[in-house]
């Protein structure tokens, strides 16, 4: 028998994402961002996460200007951070241009900024900022009272871990290769 013809449809087929879209899944993901409700026990946490996302957005805007050959990839990652911000704090406005400094110190804003550094140094700073954000968002996931928010924070941390890994691979290949 041909191998492919032997394969039969299975409810637990490899499309694992289906496991999470079942209506009986433990934590339905929100279909659209909603304003932070008054009395939200996670309000402070959302504010801190928003600050870290704004700081990362600022770092990426600077990096895109500094490393135009990586602009496509860096813009995609910046878009991811804007999506993160929209999910956890949809009422937070993103400053129109580069200076997106948060009001509170965060792991990302504490990282060395791109400034006039070389592309290699800039990418190292971005990777460190992403790793710091990943760790911060795992902690936030752990602390969240709302399970759906915890899920979002967990996936944001996973996204940031991916960014850090990809940026490290840029560095290994040569920053502007």
């Amino acid at each position: 028998m041909d191998r492919r013809s032997f394969l039969v449809l299975s409810a637990t087929a490899i499309g694992l994402a289906g496991c999470t879209s079942d209506s009986s899944a433990p934590t339905p993901r929100p279909s659209a961002p909603e304003p932070i409700p008054a009395g939200d026990p996670d309000a402070g946490l959302r504010t801190r996460v928003a600050a870290s996302e704004l700081a990362l957005i600022g770092l990426y805007r600077s990096a895109i200007v500094q490393i135009p050959k990586r602009a496509g990839e860096l813009q995609r990652f910046l878009d991811h951070h804007e999506a993160h911000l929209a999910r956890v704090a949809p009422d937070t406005a993103v400053p129109a241009e580069a200076s997106a400094e948060p009001s509170a110190p965060t792991s990302a804003s504490a990282a060395p900024g791109p400034g006039d550094a070389s592309p290699t140094v800039t990418l190292k700073a971005l990777a460190r900022a992403e790793s710091a954000a990943q760790a911060q968002h795992v902690v936030a996931c752990d602390a969240a009272q709302d399970a759906a928010l915890a899920r979002d924070l967990c996936l944001m941390a996973a996204s940031e871990a991916q960014h850090a890994a990809v940026i490290e691979s840029f560095r290994e290949k040569g920053a502007t290769a």
Binding site: I14, G15, L16, A17, C19, T20, A25, P26, T27, V138, V139, C141, D142, A143, A144, Q145, A147, A148, A150, R151, C154, L155, A158
Partner: peptide, 19 residues
């Protein structure tokens, strides 16, 4: 897919038991 599956495990866990 596993990244999302484990996010579901985290979300279904009690706060302070998700790391």
């Amino acid at each position: 897919a596993l990244a999302a599956t484990y996010a579901d495990v985290a979300a279904a866990s009690e706060p302070a038991a998700r790391r």
